[in-house]
Design a protein around this nucleic acid. Structure first.
Ligand SMILES: [Zn+2]
Ligand SMILES: [Zn+2]
Ligand SMILES: [Zn+2]
Ligand SMILES: [Zn+2]
Lengths: 138, 138
DNA sequence: CCTTGACCCTGAAGCCACTTCAGGCTTTTC
DNA sequence: GAAAAGCCTGAAGTGGCTTCAGGGTCAAGG
């Protein structure tokens, strides 16, 4: 299977596949006589694994770590648990941040119902005011 | 006021301030005889405005746009409203994504209560299985 | 007067996870 | 035999900074 077929069957762009190879997330593939990369079903699985981990918001560094762990089946999975706990905490924190942000943005949006002139726009006035308040707090 | 004081009074790093200047988010400041940057209280306000917009998750490009709007006080604030609406939609979408991610991560974490060997770890088995399922779906 | 240290300067490179580009080779198809 | 589709490499660009190398400026202390 050539790189194009691997790309089609995983939804990963060709350039990204080459990038993962450079970054040592995918093994160095065989080559044809014409120097084209050749992939096996095993490589498809590994690429899917990477994608799934990425969809769980893991960094490539973290995926690399997981792949390393998988390569030593008799080791302990402590690091995996730690990684997940850290991820969960990160995502929870980010969700809390975004909830606050939602409130702020909606409130701000409420300051201008009908578009008006810039100099009297409630949004812009509020943006300036809030920047000033932050100043006072520091 | 020199750049160090501006940095202290806003909590923005010196390098970031110079970066904002390069990116035309802050006006080119005056200089002392020794070529040190000199800032006015107006600059402090502008920097705070930038920070506040950044805290609302706006990109520097968007902040640049807002600053541009502020500089033409007799114009309409339509673009400001549009920008905010887009931001709100973006944040809402991201929150929904992260909620799903939270569920997935917690479920995954549940597959390994006590650390065991890599080859029997529920987390790793589930990671591999899910990557395969995603495959089947495509 | 000279040195120390705090402060400041510039331009370039590094970070992540890719994407895009320039320029060229291989294979398939008409 | 020529076009089109597919593949190759290495380098540079993205955003929003941060870090680094290699300096210059200025006030205080000895
Ligand atoms: Zn919620
Ligand atoms: Zn308005
Ligand atoms: Zn939920
Ligand atoms: Zn386990």
């Amino acid at each position: 299977m050539q790189i194009g077929e691997l790309a089609r069957s995983t939804g990963v762009k060709i350039e990204t596949i080459r990038y993962y190879e450079r970054e040592q997330l995918l093994p160095v593939p065989q080559r044809t006589d014409g120097n084209y990369r050749l992939y096996s079903p095993r490589d498809v699985e590994q690429l899917r694994f990477i994608c799934y981990c990425r969809s769980l918001d893991m960094s490539l560094e973290e995926v690399r770590l997981l792949i390393g762990v998988l390569d030593t089946p008799s080791g302990s999975c402590l690091t995996v648990n730690a990684l997940l706990d850290e991820k969960i905490a990160e995502v929870d924190a980010r969700v809390n941040e975004l909830h606050k942000l939602q409130d702020q943005l909606r409130q701000l949006r409420g300051f201008c119902q009908q578009p008006d002139e810039v100099k009297t726009c409630g949004i812009l006035m509020e943006l300036n005011r809030s920047a000033g308040i932050d100043k006072a707090q520091i």
